[in-house]
Design a protein around this nucleic acid. Structure first.
Lengths: 353, 353
DNA sequence: TCTTGCTCTGAAAGCGCTTTCTGAAAGGCG
DNA sequence: CGCCTTTCAGAAAGCGCTTTCAGAGCAAGA
């Protein structure tokens, strides 16, 4: 286990030295390391021993140059604070690890130019595959991806949302699930708190889906019932108040994700508004704390982990020239908890009807 | 902006082709790209134009092989779900980006062997520098780092905690801050909910610090007043109950971080325990939601962002052979909010005293 | 014993860049 | 006007690996 002499600190060991130590050629060492089956048991052992003794670590760049394969995958995401990305990335990387792949990661804070730069740098670093978020990436980026011929997968959108390989659930379906639930509870007066739409096609798609689903139930969604907020509690609470300012409070609020829903819940509680008696709230994502809030949050569980894993599998397959069928869409599951209830009985309209 | 012909899809462009297109040698193209000052204005322009037109992207592996520098930094962390790591990583990467550095990331879920493998793989990929978490890394890992001569920085521990370069705050100081605050409020009966100590030197250090600080105030900390929990709400709530089972409830609970504090708060509220009247709770980290909980959480603000940035700066300096002084310790700030208050008046002891 | 057919190892040619070394051209000075 | 210095671009030698190609060695069959 412990290492003997031979590894004087800081001296990098080249394959040639291992070869000498084992009294074989560099070619053989390489074969032992990469394709052991091609080599006799005895040699293999001898080489492995020498390699271990010298503390040999292959030089990846040289290997990459020779094999035209880097064993590195790239992931480029908006940020790491949003746990949806963090979870997907982690799943992605963990899935890659046993295949000898490492992950190059960059975040761009929804800045399109920075995203482009990141992708470019990754291509320069020779990534074998690339994971991107969403389906909205500017012509230049797609061009770059095409010329460099790097396999890539877009995540968090349904396959049909793009002509490029895309892995995720459908934001329209998600919207429908939420709206159906709320409409089923009798809500006719619904507000929406969305994320910022700048460079975020998921928010846009979800909003469109919401509009659609509401229309099917003949529920109106006037502009002033929509508020946009960054995914920060303070921002969300302000958005809540903005909606209040523009007319009577809706009986239900649809949040773009659980963080937003949390913010809404917090603000409602702070104002003494009863949830769900006076106000129903829905989230998206089923974060860990959703079940623990009081009241526990009604939300939609999204398969972030599965998406990260599949992105890895897809890219691995592409690299290995294997077939891989991307499912059209991932299952979404409504988790009904305590923040939604039947709409309060409408006040008796004093007008004619 | 848009590209013209010349970039037929998927064909990678080599430097030689750019050279031909610009009617110069490959050496000149290389110089233009890496050391423009060595080349006349006219040539530079000509080459840049050709390079852009062909959509040339350098081959990083070849470059790395020739320059013995990869422009890649590694980061190896326990996970991404804990926002302290996510934040530090993001700061690290963002700081690196403008210097042309990309980040290789791996997480090991507190598995020492997996950490070793990750580091090894990164070294193989030729990282120019490495960021690790904590100061407890097993002989083999340090050996590996030494033989490969990769500069590295350990984060989230104070410089003095290790013979190797280390960037972070002192968990003992942190403990003292919390204990002083609580003791100052008259609490003499304090419980602790810590994280799992397996392969987590930060938790161990903090616990030791806590014991020390409490001793200075002559406050006892019997074993049954300590509960260990994973950083998940459900686990934490159970830990809370475990403490309740072993004797009377303490008047204050020290949580290892804000997630834990949140869990404690949730459980207390669920049980109808008044916070802070009956029970004070402190966290660590000042997560975004800390200020928004009700009551808002008293916590200690930790400089995760600054630590990530400094890790990047340090490694960059080391690579550039520049001097860099790591501060002995980072400032910590107690943020007093609503979850701590004076200890409830002690019940009149019926015993003699 | 000689040939045929395998299996296994080594020699050597790159992979695509950077960088030293060299020579050509240009500019300054006696 | 010629010589020396200086500037700038090209030729070529690697960087450390992989992999093809060819040959050596050996077993088996004739």
């Amino acid at each position: 286990m412990t290492r003997r002499a031979g590894d004087k600190g800081g001296t990098k060991v080249r394959i040639e030295e291992v070869a000498q130590a084992a009294q074989v050629s560099a070619a053989t060492v390489s074969r032992v390391l990469n394709n052991p089956a091609l080599v006799t048991e005895a040699l293999r052992e001898k080489v492995l021993k020498a390699s271990k003794k010298l503390g040999y670590v292959a030089h990846g760049a040289a290997r990459a140059l020779a094999t035209r394969r880097s064993r590195v995958m790239g992931a480029v995401v908006p940020n790491l604070s949003n746990s949806i990305f963090a979870d997907a990335i982690e799943a992605f990387q963990r899935r890659l690890e046993p295949h000898g792949y490492t992950m190059l990661l960059a975040s761009y804070d929804y800045d399109e130019e920075m995203e482009y730069r990141s992708v470019r740098t990754m291509i320069e670093r020779g990534v074998d595959g690339l994971m991107l978020v969403g389906v909205n990436h500017g012509k230049d980026l797609y061009k770059l991806l095409q010329t460099s011929a790097v396999p890539f997968a877009q995540i968090l959108a349904p396959a049909r949302a793009s002509e490029h390989p895309t892995i995720g659930y459908d934001n329209a379906t998600l919207a429908r699930i939420v709206v159906d639930h709320l409409a089923g509870l009798g809500h006719r007066d619904i507000g929406v708190v969305a994320g910022l739409t700048r460079n975020n096609d998921r928010v846009v798609a979800r909003l469109a889906g919401l509009r659609n689903a509401l229309r099917r139930h003949r529920i109106p969604l006037p502009e002033h019932r929509i508020a946009y907020a960054e995914y920060r509690l303070a921002d969300v609470r302000e958005a809540f108040r903005r909606i209040q300012q523009h007319g009577p409070m809706p009986s239900a609020l649809i949040a773009n994700n659980d963080v937003v829903a949390h913010g809404l819940l917090l603000e409602a509680l702070a104002q003494g508004i009863r949830v769900p008696r006076q106000l129903s709230i829905t989230g998206v994502g089923d974060l860990e704390y959703a079940a623990h809030l009081s009241p526990p949050l009604t939300t939609v569980r999204t398969p972030k982990h599965a998406i990260g894993v599949m992105a890895a599998d897809y890219l691995l397959a592409r690299i290995g020239d294997r077939e891989f069928a991307i499912p059209a869409e991932f299952p979404l599951e409504l988790v009904v908890r305590g923040t939604t209830a039947a709409a309060p009985a409408p006040r008796i309209d004093q007008g004619v009807r």
